[in-house]
Design a binder for these strands. Structure first.
Lengths: 256, 256
DNA sequence: CGCCCACTTGATGCCGATCAAAACCCGTGG
DNA sequence: CCACGGGTTTTGATCGGCATCAAGTGGGCG
């Protein structure tokens, strides 16, 4: 299952055999990284691009009071820092959640493949833009939704992202996050995450055992949080059909 | 004051006279847009790049329940959608806060300038990466800080970003946001935003009158929220000096 | 001058944080 | 094989920050 990247890119753009071979050549030297290990830390100069082939990682920052905030989940097929050569130092950390298989791609290899493979270049830029769109959606999630919808939304997103890289079977997927991880992701306490997950379980929406999450009722879970997958910009998947959602007119919190 | 873009780019990279001229040529056809007007909406196909020359705008989404979440403030010198040609439709809205001067730059003009001006290309990529870094910091802010530190952090960030484009005089700058705007930005209610601003005023940290914000005590305001400007990746400014902050070891919310 | 927002302030209530402690799970070593 | 130990999960009790509701004030613009 090391074709996560190619699968993901093809969910956006058709690739030729030559494109696929060039991509495969990038992923030869695989490195195994244990769980709970930093791949790169705040302040480090970026000297290669990290690509996750297997396992889960996350971006995070630590606030002065010791509070950790997770800003992104990185799943198979995700680049950690595609464009980061432009900047002189990392402004956040990237650490593994589970054990991971990672490849470190030197800058030069990226330059070469983008010079020779325009469709791959397009697809890589698409990756970067989708990562940013996901980040925006997380801000909406944390800023605008109550705890239960937040977690429901996160689960819906993971389903789609993991499905795009072939990591979902029967609406089940690996879920190595602790409740503390989820708490630090959603701006909640671990206790409240637990209670929210229990509620979702008791509603018959999800099941969670032995670090495997199963969504028991996908339509109902999506309806619960009003899930709109447009920000993932998927094309060639079963979820990718475009819909224009008729949003209600602009409204605001409070009595404004 | 239409040199906001050039000033911003030069806070990252030294430009030649030819670079500056090429950039100036982009900004000839200025369009005036009234306050509270969408520049582009969710679902629209992107057909040109918008550059803010004067005034403030924001990115936002509207949730199914009518709740608005603002995800970014766009200030003079900011591009709204630099790379968005890759995607087929907008997944969020961009609307003005105050009256703005905007230029619509056709895709072709961007291609030409990046072909001929490598330093400009670098600087534009830097813009895009900094925008993303700001977005990450906002997620940290909303997810990890209490209301007063959230707002303090936002104000510190605006000071630095506006200073980079010459829009600050004596620690004062234009502040056309309503309390409802701030509420929808920070995931708070307008009432609580008001109380928090009142507290910051009574602490002698800020003053706010006639849509102008003055920071009365910059060091204390920064200390309050533990402000670390590294994510802005500024270089040639009075704040740009690099520091390695010795973060405390990773800790978590809750009793983990 | 008058209307429409935005701002302001008080009262009340709830969502989710915090504190505390027990049960569980799993890898480790005896 | 079982005992041990540390981290995670689970549950209950209590607390607090912020939302919500309501009503009055103020300021800018037509």
């Amino acid at each position: 299952m090391q074709d996560a990247l190619i699968r993901k890119l093809e969910s956006f753009e058709e690739l030729t055999e030559a494109d696929r071979e060039a991509l495969s050549a990038l992923t030869l030297r695989i490195r195994k990284v244990p769980a709970r290990t930093d791949l790169i830390s705040e302040g480090d100069p970026p000297n290669s691009v990290h690509l996750i082939l297997d396992g889960y990682a996350c971006r995070y920052k630590v606030l002065p009071d010791g509070q950790r905030q997770i800003m992104a989940y990185l799943v198979p097929g995700d680049f950690c820092d595609l464009n980061v050569f432009i900047l002189d130092q990392m402004d956040h950390n990237i650490g593994t959640i589970s054990a991971c298989q990672v490849v470190d791609i030197p800058r030069q290899a990226i330059v070469e493949i983008t010079d020779d493979h325009p469709r791959v270049t397009q697809a890589l830029m698409w990756c970067a833009l989708v990562d940013e769109a996901v980040l925006r959606e997380w801000l909406v999630n944390v800023g605008g939704r109550p705890a239960n919808l937040r977690i429901a939304h996160l689960i819906c997103e993971l389903l789609l992202r993991l499905e795009a890289v072939g990591r979902v079977t029967g609406n089940s997927f690996s879920f190595p996050f602790t409740q503390i991880d989820i708490a630090d992701t959603m701006g909640l306490s671990n206790v409240h995450v637990h209670r929210t997950l229990r509620d979702l379980r008791s509603l018959g929406l999800i099941a969670l055992k032995r670090r495997t999450l199963t969504i028991l009722d996908v339509p109902r879970l999506k309806a619960l949080c009003g899930y709109n997958p447009n920000y993932l910009h998927l094309k060639n998947t079963r979820w990718g059909a475009r819909r224009r959602i008729p949003w209600p007119s602009v409204g605001r919190r409070g009595s404004g």
